[in-house]
């Protein structure tokens, strides 16, 4: 698979480490979250067949985290964003 990095252009997916569902960006506040919220965040996944937003870490590159929208039935990648931008747009990392 080729991931079209927003800053570096097309890169081999083998340069990246897969880090799972992009909803992991939304970590509950550990001081206030209930046990159920924390359990669901850490352990449960939607695991859809079809379009999936997921985190890829560019370990063998610029060490950036990306949110890649990829189809889990065809491996086709339709969108690549910097995780930083996604997190900020969703109100995290102020």
């Amino acid at each position: 698979m080729i991931i079209d990095h927003p800053l570096l252009g097309p890169r081999d997916a083998a340069e990246f480490v897969y880090k799972g569902d992009a909803s992991l960006i939304h970590r509950p506040d550990g001081m206030t979250a209930t046990d159920d919220e924390m359990h669901d965040y850490v352990y449960l996944r939607d695991n859809p067949a079809g379009e999936h937003r997921e985190l890829w870490y560019h370990e063998q590159g610029d060490r950036s985290w990306l949110v890649v929208t990829r189809n889990t039935l065809t491996h086709e990648i339709s969108k690549v964003e910097l995780a930083r931008d996604v997190a900020r747009a969703e109100g995290r990392g102020q």
């Binding site: 799972g20 352990y43 449960l44 996944r45 939607d46 695991n47 067949a49």
Partner: peptide, 18 residues
Amino acid sequence: GSSSRVMEKAGMRLPIES
């Protein structure tokens, strides 16, 4: 292999990735 797809029909999320 398809557990998440099938159990989703019962409204369940699983501690599983495919």
